[in-house]
Write a protein that binds this DNA or RNA. Structure first.
Lengths: 335, 335
DNA sequence: ATGAAAGCGCTAACAG
DNA sequence: CTGTTAGCGCTTTCAT
């Protein structure tokens, strides 16, 4: 593998000169510059990134931490991140954490030692101080999806409260009264916010909250299969179910089909996310669309900006929260 | 960030001694060993991976190249790869290539310069010589899913021909005669093999091949929406559709629902892959199951073995093809 | 405008 | 058993 010295030798200059023409940060005589460029081309030389990183303390690598790439919302976000990273010369390391603090910590420690340039994390939890400190330690960091107001962190999110409020309001406006909620783990802030939107919409429409219409996740999305069945085993059915994520909604659709319930005639189902599959299930799922791919793009862009800013000033820019728009898309699962 | 010299100073030894106790490759006096270990713990030291990589020519990083993580089969494979990599101290760089040769090449070039330890590629095509040469150049390489007999490469695949043959045979045995085929791009070897299995099953059962029952992908999986509709617009319907992948089958289900076709009463649908979603669509999809997660695990294991072998001998081991078992899982989309 | 030299943090001969 | 030295490939003062 040809290195900078080989090129220097061929061009009859020193390694520093080669470095200079390649970096373009310093003036080099036009003639020697040409000779160097030629040698580079001849030998098909490109610099050893590792050596460069070691010297510069910059690796052009970013980490993307997700709970699991198998969860339908993360492939889209990931794609947005990766496309943006690639276009900017960055490489992305994928970390599945299963929201396990130990795995997260061990990844973080390992990556720090690799001079990782920054972190995008989609697995933030209230107790995730090991993540919050990253910024204090000087690491560029952007949090996606899950972020509470108190966190003084760069983030890209949607207004979960308002989106859920609007969604439930829509359900009410279209004649639903007994609206069940499929609620994800409440430690996850976005589920809590979506729940609050649901509650507020009911309240503002003078509809009483019925505790037995609230299904709480016990053990992954599949728990809603059983929760739905047991809710419907009771005597009073809901006329709609608002699911706090599309994967949950899809499981609920499945349970409903199994029970012979007609959708939306008997029960409407409304999801949240608009993952790609939502349009393809039967009936096509009405849902609150988040711009998942774009969230990835924005997150990566913000992170790269932080990195560049830090390059120049040695400091991190003040954090800013980007709130992206949601969109209620009505398909066939609601009447 | 504390380095090996700091530790050495604290323990009152030289850097090499610290290196030695940490690598464990050389005997060190038990006492000094203790002092070093203590210093390491005190300072919470862990080595700089970059420097180590530069020195050793090994980065403990592997690349995973997929067409797109948004395709439902890749999250599972990816998860298998990543879990296995992590357990073995490797980090994975995710590369979405859209099967674009230029993107693949640019990734490969970049990663080589990073001393990437090896490649797992899921986007192999007949013309992918830029990938095949990787092995010749000494890079550990394992190909997943797409691999032709002539390639003298490490690979993990399933027997697509036989699996498709069995699947179509099942359809015939259960009373279907006019079996349509939803065929993916024929450059992709696995689709060609699945097609051949389909053809052979028909032939062996003395069922004539009807060219107008073969739908050929034109523009992504969604093209099967229109292909299905236009096939059914003709006068003679199939009584079953065999899709060469689950994402295609799911699109077909969607088209069929749109047209009011009953599944499986009017038409049976059989997929291939058994992605997670298959069990959740309506009706739950009968399909040929590939062990996707396991394929990722096996691929990563094979790659890591190659890497270790190369470490010790300087050579790559002889390539071997692992053929994993498929399984016909019958759910509700076939009668 | 260019070269020499130092050093990023680590490991591996080579001495002793 | 341990320290000294050199060097992985690059960038960046500091001289010239």
């Amino acid at each position: 593998m040809t290195n900078i010295k080989d090129v220097a030798a061929m061009a009859g200059v020193s390694a520093s000169t080669v470095s200079r023409v390649l970096s373009g940060k310093s003036y080099v005589n036009a003639q020697t510059r040409q000779r160097v460029l030629e040698a580079v081309k001849q030998m098909d030389y490109s610099p050893n990134v590792l050596a460069k990183s070691l010297k510069m303390g910059r690796s052009n690598t970013i980490a993307l931490m997700v709970p699991s790439i198998q969860n339908l919302i993360f492939p889209d976000i990931t794609r947005g991140v990766e496309d943006t990273a690639r276009k900017n010369g960055f490489t992305v390391v994928l970390c599945n954490t299963d929201e396990d603090v130990e795995i997260e910590k061990s990844y973080i420690n390992k990556l720090k030692k690799r001079w990782i340039d920054g972190f995008i994390v989609c697995s933030m939890m209230p107790g995730s101080d090991h993540i919050r400190v990253l910024r204090d330690e000087g690491f560029p960091l952007v949090v996606v999806s899950r972020c509470s107001k108190e966190d003084h962190l760069d983030a890209v999110i949607v207004d979960n409260y308002q989106a859920a409020y609007n969604a439930v309001n829509y359900l009410i406006r279209t004649g639903h009264r007994r609206i069940a909620l499929a609620l994800g783990r409440e430690e996850v802030i976005l589920y809590r916010e979506r729940c609050e939107g649901y509650l507020a919409a009911l309240r503002d429409n003078h509809i009483p909250v019925e505790e037995n219409l609230i299904m709480r996740e016990t053990n992954g999305n599949n728990s809603f299969y059983y929760l739905t069945k047991s809710m419907l085993a009771g005597d009073s059915w809901p006329d709609a179910i608002f699911a706090t994520s599309d994967p949950k909604a899809i499981v609920i659709l499945h349970a409903l089909h199994d029970m012979g319930v007609r959708i939306p005639e008997d029960i409407s189902v409304l999801g949240f996310d608009n993952v790609y599959m939502s349009a393809l299930v039967e009936p096509p799922l009405s849902t609150v669309a988040q711009p998942l791919y774009e969230m990835g793009v924005v997150a990566a862009t913000k992170l790269i900006n932080q990195i560049k800013f830090k390059d120049q000033t040695g400091l991190l820019p003040a954090p800013a929260v980007d709130i992206l728009n949601t969109d209620l898309v009505i398909r066939k699962s609601t009447r």
